[in-house]
Write a protein that binds this DNA or RNA. Sequence first.
DNA 1: CCCATATCTGAACGAATGCACAGCTGTTCA
DNA 2: TGAACAGCTGTGCATTCGTTCAGATATGGG
Lengths: 129, 129
Amino acid sequence: MGTNTTRLDRLLAEQLEECCAGDTGERIETLESLSDSADAGGDLQVLSALSDDTRYRLASLLAAADGELCVCELTAVVDVSDSATSHALGDLHDAGLVTRRKDGQWRYYDATERTERVLDALDETRGER
Amino acid sequence: MGTNTTRLDRLLAEQLEECCAGDTGERIETLESLSDSADAGGDLQVLSALSDDTRYRLASLLAAADGELCVCELTAVVDVSDSATSHALGDLHDAGLVTRRKDGQWRYYDATERTERVLDALDETRGER
DNA sequence: CCCATATCTGAACGAATGCACAGCTGTTCA
DNA sequence: TGAACAGCTGTGCATTCGTTCAGATATGGG
């Protein structure tokens, strides 16, 4: 964590004259406790997985389609090689964003609840602030 | 978009014998229309902004704290240089994830609705599938 | 006006990452 | 059993990206 608190000291000292506020150590402790509670589950892995164009397209395609899709259907839509598609789907699977089902020579993927919820959140706040 | 549809042709041909399904062109068109409707607003920019550890910490800190925080408070918690913090906050601002307010020599940031919704979605689906 | 301070900006360098290519596994069908 | 095919994996390369460093801008006080 950061240790240089001179600026924060001054800010708190200034705010003391305006309203309330406590001492620096206490303030930082409060903020750090908020910060530590973050990313209890692999949020960063999820966000990283979705932050690439290819993987984002695949994920939102799987979320938009109701029901699972075959790899060959997905490859037909994203314009990268089979290999890249497979890598991308593997990453999404590792992040818990898609499920994988094998059926003979075909393999089907589907979006998980987590994917849908995150994409919905983005959908619903489109155009705000 | 991808144009090699031989595999998809075969999949659809096989499914024809099992259940319903239409022709390849129609199928791809359906999927592409789903794909195109994605990312109408800068979803990728938002996801990219949140997919970095420093920016994620800043964003979730701002979302967790009720009300705005000063840059010096944020710098005290994330353990990177002032400059890196500033760069990170700038990126978050560009992505529409935080608001910026200037007050004298201090500058205050706050999380937007969009940030809170996305992080909530991740929170609420923690540990699923 | 000058200096200290808070924050931002541009450049540069090292690390991380997405992609294509080649080769591999496993399934289907003759 | 062997050919054809769906999909996965390892590797090298080109690009992107996060950070620090140095310097710029802007605010406040003496």
